[in-house]
Design a binder for these strands. Structure first.
Length: 126
RNA sequence: GGAGUCAGCUGGGCAAUUGCUGUUUGUUUUCUUUGUAAGCCGUUUUAUGGCUAUCGAGGUGGCAGAUGGAGGAAAGUCCGGGCUCCGCAGAGCAGGGUGCCAGGUAACGCCUGGGAAAUGUGAAUUUACGGCUAGUGCAGCAGAAAAUAUACCGCCUAACAUUACAAUUUUUCGGAAUUGGUUGGGUAAGGGUGAAAAGGUGCGGUAAGAGCGCACCGCGCAUCUGGUAACAGUUUGUGGCAGUGUAAACCCCACUCGGAGCAAGGCCAAAUAGGAAUCCUUUUUUGCUGCUCGCAAUGGAUUCGGGUAGGCCGCUAGACACCUGUGGUGACGCAGGUUGCAGAUGAAUAAUUGUCCUCGACAGAACCCGGCUUAUAGGCUGACUCACUUC
RNA sequence: GCCCCGGUGGCACAGCUGGAUAGCGCGGCCCCCUCCUAAGGGGCAGGUCAGUGGUUCGAAUCCACUCCGGGGCA
């Protein structure tokens, strides 16, 4: 886990990038507070995009905090998620959680996602 | 020391590790370019053209170092300005805003100083504080009457009726007087009400009363004094005193406001389309808030169908902040100096751990400033007031 | 980021400009009609008028601030 950088190549940058993930989402994992959509990509790194709606998280401070925590979690554990484009959506009351709770929830999601990916790729190989 | 008022400041600190972003330096990758000088090719030679490599310049990406990186409210978007476009930012009407006076300011609905009123023992605080004696409108219920003053009861008086009846007084026991009735006149002192009832108190006056007269108080008008003014006054005179409230009712007066907003606006690149149907027409339609003028553009409107939502500039150093001096009661102005200065764009300023303390509130820039309003844990400083205690 | 609208019974709305009764429809409950139900008829309940403060004698209405909800703008 040497590479923990988080440069622009690790993010979804344009509306078309986002549209691609929403339209062709192959994987979908969620819990009460977050929903993750994912699809395989052609770039050498995994990429992430965030959708934190004002409707679900009212205060700008909390939106920023959640985004930071997601990015933090993603960049430290992105080696698990090779060759995937992700979109993370926050659900209602996500701002009520503590930082550590959010971090552990996200770790769980990444691992679920990696398992599903492995299952799909193995079935494709068969 | 207690209770309180006002003004100002602050808005967790330190360390380690891992990250994001602006600027800058170095290095490297690749691209472009003209210049320098050299070589090769083409040409009989010159002029010139092409290719290769070096140095220089510029751009892009990576790496390393240095350095900067949310707020007092960044919020609400309630006002004001800069900036950009609408040809100029124009004229009139309509409409909006402000509203004691003076000053400050780029400007303001903000601020400062002053006046008035209200609240508080006080320090102080609060005030949409021009005009309903320019006009119009509105004021339920209750009450006699609700803005024209009126006249229901009452009070007074005159006339009529009558001792039939009732009450009271008196009596020489025959009766007599007064009041109660009706009509006319005078009056507004008193009258359950109501948010509000047409100056107040006292004396005189009167048939009863009344600013009817007088004194004091209040009020209006004029004048004088002080003040730039609002306004103030135990200046002087005058008016018997007229008109309750509501202008966050229409309105009047004074001042003021053109519209849209950085998703403004400009540039580059790519893609698609240069359509179809219906209707209206030659001065129509659109834009400049509404209307008229004026100006500009141009066939226009509606429906259907199709396409784009990438990059760069605008973009942060400015009516900036701080310090000193100086003018001013002050807001603030002037002069000099200093170091400081976020600029993202699917959107940075953080996470984890350790440690300390008083255990950390409200809360996140998106073109930029000046205000207002709202949210806010705690801590610090200064000035002042009140009551008590001690010296 | 900027610019606009709206908030009234359980639901969808009127009343607000122009101040003094809070109303209509659907829904709910009760009664009548019917063998029973539906339809129909009659009656009843149900409202901090988003909140706070102000103006006024009096505010759903006028004014200010706040809180929610919705829409538009390259």
């Amino acid at each position: 886990m040497a590479d923990t950088a988080f440069s622009r190549s690790c993010r979804l940058l344009t509306a078309s990038d986002y549209k691609n993930v929403f339209d062709k989402s192959q994987l979908k994992v969620s819990n009460r507070y977050f929903l993750v959509l994912a699809t395989t990509n052609s770039s050498p790194t995994p990429r992430i995009g965030l959708v934190i709606a004002k409707k679900n998280v009212g205060k700008a401070v909390h939106r920023n905090r959640i985004k930071r925590l997601i990015r933090q979690s993603f960049r430290t554990q992105k080696s698990v998620l090779d060759k995937l484009d992700l979109v993370v959506l926050a659900r209602k009351d996500a701002d009520k959680l503590e930082n550590q709770a959010i971090a552990s929830l996200l770790t769980q999601l990444w691992q679920d996602l990696a398992k599903k990916l492995a299952r799909i790729s193995s079935s494709v190989n068969q």
